[in-house]
Design a protein around this nucleic acid. Structure first.
Ligand code: MN
Ligand code: MN
Ligand code: ZN
Ligand code: ZN
Lengths: 140, 140
DNA sequence: CCGAAGTTTGGAATGATTTTTAATTTAAAA
DNA sequence: TTTTAAATTAAAAATCATTCCAAACTTCGG
């Protein structure tokens, strides 16, 4: 998305747009790396050397409240963030930790077994695929 | 499993069996609640008032190294632990946070889309089902 | 029993994340 | 523009789960 459009989009959502926020939005726009807060912070710091962690966390929260950013709970060490709020699944490389996307709806296949049908009503599902990314498969 | 058998099982794995460890093993044996470290700690403290958090974490680690306990990374706030190391999937109640088990192998249904086949080699998968447990559905 | 090796403990340290603070900046209305 | 309330910022402090540490204590084989 063009930067001007990104800015317009968030202005419409009632976000006051500061240079730091624009840098964060810019960094996240189209980003499929599932960065952690720290990774967002250091990515931004290159162009905004004075940005603080609080600003990163504040903005993460503002975006989450507006449904524009999703917390990804896959890495036991830290939270990661996904600027794509569409439901999708993830690949996790057990070697390098890289998180990739899988856009496919498995809902039809993911039926609960009989004995659980009356005990839990499912509203959504999320699949994690563990294995090795191509990079880590090669250098094995 | 009978307590004597549990003890034998871990002795065979080279674990020195202290009263604290036995209490933890006892607490975990057959437990399907996916407790956090804190929940293990307070569950044990009733009968072992002097136990420390470090012991709980030490034992968690010892059991994990022996493949007897699995870290569950579902709750963004804290780690949970599952004494069932068999591959299986989870139900997460979005209301009360309760984590339940789903014993069913969806592997055949969970094929990566064409374009990812050459980019990632999957070794395992894990499905999280989100929704409402029967308790939370009723009191809705 | 003895002793080596492993374990427990309480407290301190760590690391990610959140909250607080006081000063600054902004949006939006006049 | 000017005003003003609300939002934002950077830095510091607080929080919370988890890990580390050094000293005291157990376990278990011999
Ligand atoms: Mn994603
Ligand atoms: Mn389970
Ligand atoms: Zn990799
Ligand atoms: Zn529930």
């Amino acid at each position: 998305m063009a930067r001007a459009n990104v800015i317009q989009k968030y202005r419409d959502k009632g976000l006051k747009l500061t240079p730091q926020r624009i840098a964060i939005l810019d960094f996240l726009d189209g980003n499929t790396d599932h960065p952690s807060a720290e990774e967002i912070f250091s990515g931004i710091k290159q162009t905004n050397p004075t940005i603080s962690f609080a600003t990163v966390y504040n903005t993460i929260q503002a975006l989450r409240e507006r449904g524009e950013l999703v917390e990804v709970t896959i890495d036991p060490e830290r939270k990661h963030y996904d600027p794509n709020p569409e439901p999708h699944h993830h690949l996790i490389c057990s070697k390098c930790g890289k998180i990739g996307d899988v856009f496919e709806d498995f809902t039809d296949a993911l039926k609960l077994p009989q004995e659980l049908l009356g005990k839990f009503s499912v509203t959504s599902n999320h699949v994690n695929f563990y294995g090795a990314c191509i990079n880590c498969s090669k250098g094995n």
